[in-house]
């Protein structure tokens, strides 16, 4: 795996420059009712074969976290952006 990602601050770098934060899956706003629901929110992800919204961190460069949308089948990265500049989510990213 050696595809390229564009750090919003530093520019295009090899993927090995980055840390992967997993798919965007916001923390629930309040405590889930059951332990099972809590575990699901902590551990379960959609894991789509397709485009997903993800966290990445440029650990070898500026050290900043940013968002990306990537096709998990092809590693084609649609866009990367600082969280405050990211396009609105194209679909609800949370699976409770």
């Amino acid at each position: 795996m050696s595809f390229l990602l564009t750090c919003p601050n530093c520019g295009v770098r090899e993927v090995a420059d980055f840390g992967f934060g997993g798919e965007v899956s916001p923390r629930p706003a309040s405590r889930p009712e059951s332990l099972r629901a809590l575990a699901a929110s902590a551990y379960f992800r959609r894991n789509v074969a397709g485009v997903q919204r993800e966290w990445w961190v440029h650990r070898s460069g500026c050290g900043q976290w940013f968002l990306a949308e990537r096709d998990t089948r092809t590693n084609d990265v649609k866009w990367t952006a600082r969280p405050d500049e990211a396009p609105a989510a194209t679909r609800e990213p949370v699976r409770a």
Binding site: N9, C10, G11, R13, D17, H58, S60, G61, C62, G63
Partner: peptide, 12 residues
């Protein structure tokens, strides 16, 4: 200015 991996270290 190029922040990025240099010899497997974070670098600039």
């Amino acid at each position: 200015l190029r922040p990025g991996s240099v010899a497997r270290m974070p670098g600039i």
